[in-house]
């Protein structure tokens, strides 16, 4: 008789491989890697059922550092590869990791379709607003005016907002966090993991070499309380030192406004309450930018919907049930046949 020993609880360290991590010292990716490893340990995830799929870029090296199954694919195509993995085996927990160039430029098309299909994946977009691995060109999320080797006079094209993009294409889970928020990030990732469908998480990540400090206007300690709002479903949208500020919905102009509690008779009851099932509100939150607004972090939107692969396999199950028997010989003989004597 086999004696089953109780499963040993895995720690974050158990999710690390023996491979030397090769990001630049001080790169935000280290913190995200630690955050993900912590999350998986806290979730008691099963390494054998966990797959990390990535494309190309600094962020895409991620799978090599996770003691799970991993597939480092080609530039931009990780959402498509991951879709194939889920179609073949819906039981696997599949995480997709990539940067802003990988997922919003060369792979923007796949990102759009994997989100709209609602394939059950955790999609982590490390947004550092720059191309790191190719040595510093501007990216589709770079602000206008970004000086880079390919834009010496400053970039001139409009950046895309990752969260607004994901909302626009019908995403069922859109969240945001940051590399330096070591407590916030695992909580967001846990929500992403538990959501059935394409969970899209934009993680603001500092590239210390090519775009250092690009997010400091809302991530630095001195400004973070004033320039970040951590949204929670069912909670009033408060932020600022001592939570003295909040967002109200200006119904005449259909937009959010920043107010200060106690000014003009504003009380906490006037503050809008976050409803993560409200796509319109999520869109308004995603649009907010400093200095006029804080950056919205947390789960901006979450609404359950059937997953793509579940629907695919439901059709197969139905067809299998409807057919008396899946028999190749009878399929070969279906339709008009004749016998030659």
């Amino acid at each position: 008789m086999n004696v089953q020993s109780p499963p040993e609880k895995l720690t974050a360290r158990d999710f690390a491989t023996d491979q030397e991590v090769r990001w630049c010292p001080g790169c935000g990716d280290y913190a995200i890697l630690k955050g993900v490893q912590n999350t998986l340990a806290q979730l008691e995830a099963d390494p054998k059922n966990t797959v990390f799929v990535s494309g190309i870029g600094c962020a895409a090296r991620f799978p090599y550092y996770m003691e799970t199954y991993g597939f480092h694919t080609i530039h931009g195509r990780s959402p498509a590869v991951a879709s194939g993995v889920k179609l073949a085996n819906p039981e696997l927990d599949v995480w997709v990791v990539g940067g802003d160039g990988d997922m919003l430029s060369i792979g923007g098309n796949h990102t759009m379709h994997v989100i709209r299909r609602n394939v059950d994946l955790q999609i982590l977009l490390f947004n550092n607003q720059i191309y790191g691995l190719t040595k510093g060109q501007y990216s589709p999320t770079s602000k206008i005016g970004t000086k880079s080797p390919s834009t010496p006079l400053g970039s001139i094209d409009n950046p895309v907002s990752a969260a607004q993009f994901a909302l626009g294409v019908g995403g069922t889970f859109i969240a945001r966090s940051s590399d330096i928020l070591q407590k916030h990030l695992p909580e967001v990732l846990k929500r992403a993991y538990k959501h059935k469908g394409a969970s899209f998480v934009e993680i603001f990540q500092n590239c210390i070499v090519y775009n250092d400090g690009v997010f400091k206007h809302f991530t630095e300690k001195s400004v973070q309380d004033e320039m970040q709002i951590h949204v929670e479903h069912g909670e009033p949208l408060l932020f600022g030192t001592d939570k003295s500020k909040g967002l109200i919905l200006n119904k005449d102009e259909m937009r959010l406004e920043v107010v200060t509690l106690g000014e003009n008779g504003i009380t906490v009851d006037d503050i809008a309450v976050h409803d993560e099932t409200n796509r319109g509100l999520a869109t308004m939150l995603a649009q907010m930018d400093p200095p006029d607004y804080p950056v919205a972090l947390g789960v901006l939107y979450a609404e359950p919907a059937p997953t793509y692969e579940a629907s695919v396999h439901a059709q197969i199950a139905q067809a299998t049930k409807d057919a008396d028997k899946a028999d190749l010989n009878s399929l070969l003989r279906r339709g008009q046949t004749w016998t030659v004597e």
Partner: peptide, 25 residues
């Protein structure tokens, strides 16, 4: 009824990539 999964992908590249992902799995 044979358990065949067909996937009309968003483009040719995604089709190949998804097939590779499926083989990997």
């Amino acid at each position: 009824e044979f358990g065949v999964v067909t996937f009309q992908a968003e483009d040719e590249i995604a089709a190949a990539a998804a097939a590779i992902g499926a083989s990997y799995a």
